[in-house]
Design a binder for these strands. Sequence first.
RNA 1: GGAGAGGUGGCAGAGUGGUCGAAUGCGCCGCACUCGAAAUGCGGUAGGCUCGAAAGGGUCUCGGGAGUUCGAAUCUCCCCCUCUCCGCCA
Length: 420
Amino acid sequence: MLDIKFIRENKDLVKAGARKKHVDIDLDALIVLDDKRKALTASFEAKRAEQNAVSAKLPSADAETKAALLESMKKVKTDMQADEEALKEMMKEWQAMMLRVPNMPDISVPDGVSDADNKEVHTWGEKTQFSFQPKDHIELMTKLDLLDLEKGTETAGFRGYYLKNDAVTMNFGLWQFVLDRFVKKGYKPMMVPSLVRKQPLYGTGYLPQGEEDLYKTQDGDYLTGTAEVATMSYFADKVIDKSELPMKIIAFSTCFRREAGSHSKDTKGIIRVHEFYKLEQVILCEASHEESVKHHEELRRNSEEILEALKLPYHTVVNCGGDIGLGQVKKYDLEAWVPSQNTYRETHSCSYFHDFQTRRLNIRYRDTDGKLKFAHSLNNTALAGPRILVPIIENYQQEDGSVKVPDILKPYLGKDVITK
RNA sequence: GGAGAGGUGGCAGAGUGGUCGAAUGCGCCGCACUCGAAAUGCGGUAGGCUCGAAAGGGUCUCGGGAGUUCGAAUCUCCCCCUCUCCGCCA
């Protein structure tokens, strides 16, 4: 959520930002509505002031004066109730509109509509060369008895999967490896809920506009698609001591995504599934653009280092205006090389928000000037599984269908090669 | 699931119809003392909206919503949450 004062004072900038994100929002209508809000509020408050003044006189007034005052209050009171009713109705509309105003993308965000317009900013490693026709992860993993999609679908429906044997061990090794790295860097580990109320999703910017991609329970709660939601919500309505900033968290949770609107994409395999697991980096820092940018680059490097430790060829792209979320100022995607698709596929997504989320969640700190300020927030994937297994299995495959184990995972698997 | 107690400022905690946006303590900020610090003393210190150049004013907020009342932190109803005990349980 942006500050209404900021929107009023920077209408053209905010408009340009919405245009860059291809978000349709009528800011002029919002400002007209806000004018009405101010006028109606003033009218209501003037009447309330009158009432308060009369109320203050009452205890010491004699019976006759008292009766006269009470009589004169009747009209003020009914008028006031009418104002209040109108104000309440209007504020619903005002709130709904405010929730749809997108945060402004950074100047360095390229123009574009879809992920096809994202710009590569960094590449690492050589695309894996094979002296044979490489297989895809589905065939490799199924033949090695690491994955059962048939039973997965039978049990869990579309996009269901079972992970088995060394794939499980490998995945647990990855969780441990990544968690250890972040803890060493000073990130505080957390395991956070995936089942949450509405408010954390509004607060992080996934509602109201992303409802169709969320699972909802019969109690009106939701399953989150990322640990970011509950991690951010942990700090909701808090005033953080400035000495605790930057607050760096490494959070683990299950993740659920309905994948509405992506029915024809990645229908086979474990790239796009409804239920997965994620270690997520979250940072809260002081309210400064420079701090946000600094930590954004740090988060990006953290994840690039994970892919480098796994020796996976990858590149980093900066997402274009049409491919970043409502609240995001700027986003990098890290994409690892997937030989069977002859392309890079997203494994990490790294964003910063300025105070868009913290304003909604009311996460503040007291600055050295004594003022309360909304913190800035950022997040990035640290590791998402089982998707990460796709580039690992495919890039490490051998001609006979066996899969070499990345050096850093050998201690966890206790072997160098996964064979049948 | 059953019974009871509770939700108040950055934190702890008092307040049970007007004198309460709210005692007190801690924390924080300023000043004094000190070579400096600690300790101590004195003073200040909730947030949002809004009017105003500013000084300052108005208004709202004591978990959320509705109600009673001229007036609600305080009374009534609904909801949410926390704690204690009992039950059940990975």
